Computed example of a mutant assay.
Amino acid sequence: MSTLSTPETAAQNATEALDARYGTPWNAPLPAWNTTLDTLLAHRSVRNYAKKPLPEGTLETLIAAAQSASTSSNLQTWSVVAVEDPERKARLSKLAADQSQVREAPLFLVWLADLNRLEAAAQRTSASAEGLHYMETLLVGVIDAALAAQNAVVALESLGLSSVYIGAIRNQPEQVAAELGLPPRVMPVFGLCVGYADESRPAQVKPRLPQSVVLHREQYDAPTQTEGIAQYDEVMGAFQTAQGLSAAGWTSRSLARWRSRESLHGRDRLRDALQALGFELR
C-alpha cells in the first residue's frame, strides 16, 4: 500500500513532479500525495541499460502485477513471451527497426493479444466460438495486453527498474510470430525492454500535452485545444533543444510520423499481417 508523505514533503514532491510532467508551473490545487504518484509521475522511457542482471524472481513478480490489471469479463485475452537469450533478442531487434535497446536490456517482453487460448478451449469442449473472429474480440485482446503491460511498468519502476515500449515489434509481425513460435490467432502487440538504467546516460521526464488539450468536461471541446497545443509546441521545442536535438515542436514531429504510408515502416500492411496470423476480422 502507498504511504502518505508529510504535508510539506508531499507538496514539494507534487509540485516538482507536476512541473516536470507538463514543462510548465502547475497551477491547480495540489491533491493528497503518496509514493505511488511519485512513481507514476516520474515515468520516463529508458533506452540505455546497465549491464546488470535482474534479481531472481523479478519476472514472476512483474507478471503477477500484470495479471492484477483489469481484464474484460475476466477473459484474460493476453499472454507475454519473456526473452532473455541474447541471440533471440538480436533477431527481434532486427525485426523491430534494429533498436539497440532490445539487445541491451537484460529482459525483453513481447506482449500478445491471445485469442488462441479461448479457441482451444472451445475446441476441447465442442463449443461455438464464432465471436472470436470479430474485430471487437481482437480489440479486447489488445486492450487487455496494454492494461497488463502498464501494470508491469508501474511495478518495475517501483522496484527501481526502467523500461521502454517497442511499438516496432509490429513492423514485421509474421516474422516475430515465427521467431516466438506463436500459434494462430495470437498477435504481437508491442515489446517492452526491462532493466536497470545506465546512469551515465540518464533519461529525462518528457513533458506531456497540457490538460486543457486532453481533458474535456461533459462534452468534447475541440476549439479550446489550439492554444494549449501552441503552448506545448514551445515546451517541446525547449525540451528537444535541452536534449541536444532539433527544436521541432510536437505538431511538426507528430505530423511527420504520419506523413506517408512509408512512415508506418511496414505497419501499413497490418490488416494483411493479421489475416496471415489467423484473424478473420469480420
Rank of each mutant, 00 (worst) to 15 (best):
V164Y: 03
E174N: 11
I143P: 01
S158R: 05
V140F: 13
I169H: 02
L161W: 06
A145M: 09
T137I: 04
Q175E: 11
S162C: 12
A149I: 01
A149H: 00
A148K: 10
A155F: 08
L159I: 02
G141V: 07
S163Q: 14
A148R: 11
A168D: 12
D144M: 14
A145I: 07
L156Y: 02
A148H: 08
L156A: 13
V142W: 04
V154D: 00
D144N: 15
V154N: 09
S158M: 06
E136D: 15
A149F: 01
E157S: 12
Q175C: 00
I166D: 04
L139H: 10
L139W: 05
L156S: 01
I166A: 04
I143S: 07
A146H: 04
G167L: 09
L159V: 02
G160M: 03
V142Q: 03
A155M: 13
G167I: 03
V154T: 13
S162L: 01
E157I: 06
I166K: 06
I143Q: 14
N151K: 06
L156K: 05
L138P: 02
R170Y: 07
I143E: 09
T137K: 12
Q175T: 05
A168M: 07
Q150W: 12
V164F: 02
L156C: 07
D144K: 15
V140D: 09
G160A: 03
V153E: 08
A145V: 07
L161R: 12
A146C: 10
L161F: 05
A148M: 05
D144T: 10
D144E: 11
V140G: 08
N171H: 14
I169Y: 01
A168Q: 11
Q175L: 13
A148I: 06
A168I: 03
V140N: 15
Q172H: 15
A146N: 09
V164K: 09
A149P: 03
L161Q: 10
N151I: 04
P173C: 04
A146P: 02
I169A: 13
N151F: 06
G167R: 10
V153R: 08
S163R: 07
T137M: 15
G141K: 10
A152M: 15
N171I: 07
I169D: 00
I169T: 09
S158A: 15
A152W: 02
I143N: 11
Y165V: 10
L147E: 12
A168Y: 01
S158Y: 05
L159N: 05
A146L: 02
V142N: 06
L138T: 14
I169K: 05
A145T: 11
I166H: 08
I143Y: 03
S163I: 05
Q172D: 06
